[in-house]
């Protein structure tokens, strides 16, 4: 691989600071690898800004997985059938698992999970704003699966080809599970839509509330997106926000028809000329407000996360103390109290 080769020929001096000639060689090797669609691996040289961008993005993604457990866990204890309860518990468990893969991917960039969690708890790193909306009825579980996971997949499938190897590989596995969740959400809504009039109304209400926030998940319009251009150049990102949003709308329209539900946008119609659907204006003021912390659940989500972390501190301390006492001990052969 090009970068490793460059490192062999231009090694960083022992005092750590590479001289300018070496940096230029590294940069060239990096640029060449990215241009050739090669993967950048953890031990490869990479520009500081590339590393920082990845840490920011992967951390935000990991945080979204663990905060995203909350709105759905809200319904585990009330799931209306044992089959649905099993599906929902497995889904929330998958999200914890995704959090684990992603924090591990971030660790390959030299940032620990603890450090990232501290930043999340201190409000210095973000998670997807979509989870700042409440799950008010059972149908919201279906709407999250169909729309939120659907939007996430649209965003994430291109990340399986992201230039950073560990992130790309984590995304392959995550996308497989997410598409399963998306189908389960669709199937849940279908059962409601074809159920009693009350169930149908519940499904329509949930779709009405989740549609616009789902469209906001693709981020601000291209001309206002802060990080997009550089990320596309680095092949961390492969498609623009607006492009992905339009793709998502095109996928959802026929699915809504099959569900027997409507999407809450009177301007939504097929544009023959463009080969895409036109849709109404997105309320970016709402987006900015939720982003700033003024969404319906921002406070609640972060408070619960901090509380779980703080209340669990004694458990983590006990595990660390036990491990320290039993270094080299599997823990199964007996504890000798020191």
């Amino acid at each position: 691989m090009a970068i490793a080769a460059a490192q062999r020929t231009a090694r960083t001096p022992a005092d750590g600071a590479p001289d300018t000639v070496d940096t230029a060689a590294y940069q060239h090797a990096f640029d060449t690898a990215v241009a050739a669609d090669e993967r950048i691996e953890p031990r490869d040289w990479m520009p500081d800004a590339y590393r920082a961008t990845l840490v920011r993005q992967i951390a935000q993604h990991a945080h979204s997985e663990i905060i995203g457990m909350q709105p759905e866990a809200n319904w585990i204890t009330r799931a209306p059938s044992l089959r649905r309860k099993a599906i929902l518990m497995a889904k929330v468990q998958d999200e914890a698992g995704h959090g684990l893969y992603l924090y591990s991917a971030a660790e390959t960039l030299g940032t620990s999970r603890d450090e990232l969690l501290d930043k999340l708890h201190a409000g210095r790193q973000k998670y997807s704003s979509i989870f700042n909306y409440p799950t008010l009825t059972w149908a919201d579980v279906g709407a999250i699966g169909w729309l939120v996971d659907g939007a996430a997949i649209t965003n994430q499938v291109p990340l399986c080809r992201c230039s950073y190897g560990p992130y790309a590989r984590a995304m392959v596995r995550i996308c497989k599970e997410e598409s399963f969740h998306q189908r389960q959400g669709y199937e849940l809504l279908l059962a409601l839509s074809k159920g009693t009039p009350e169930q149908h109304a519940m499904a329509q209400d949930a779709v009405n509330r989740w549609w616009w926030p789902s469209l906001m998940m693709f981020g601000p319009p291209d001309d206002e997106s802060q990080h997009s251009a550089q990320s596309m150049e680095w092949k961390i990102k492969r498609h623009s926000n607006d492009e992905l949003r339009r793709r998502f709308v095109d996928i959802c329209v026929p699915q809504a028809e099959s569900l027997g539900l409507t999407l809450p946008d009177p301007e939504l119609r097929w544009n023959e000329e463009q080969g895409h659907h036109d849709f109404g204006p997105i309320d970016w003021t709402e987006f900015q407000e939720v982003l700033k912390g003024n969404g319906p659940c921002n406070e609640q989500r972060i408070t619960q996360r901090r509380r779980a972390h703080d209340e669990g501190a004694w458990v983590r301390e006990a595990a660390a103390a036990y491990a320290a006492k039993h270094t080299g001990d599997t823990g199964e052969t007996g504890a000798t109290r020191a």
């Binding site: 518990m89 468990q93 914890a96 698992g97």
Partner: peptide, 28 residues
């Protein structure tokens, strides 16, 4: 299942949910 989102460490979110799922399967 009530632990979901409240566990002391991420690994325990996975483990407690796993036990809950096994038990739910047995119950069914």
């Amino acid at each position: 299942g009530e632990w979901a989102g409240h566990a002391p460490v991420l690994e325990e979110e996975v483990a407690l949910a796993n036990i809950a799922l096994d038990l739910l399967g047995q119950a069914r």
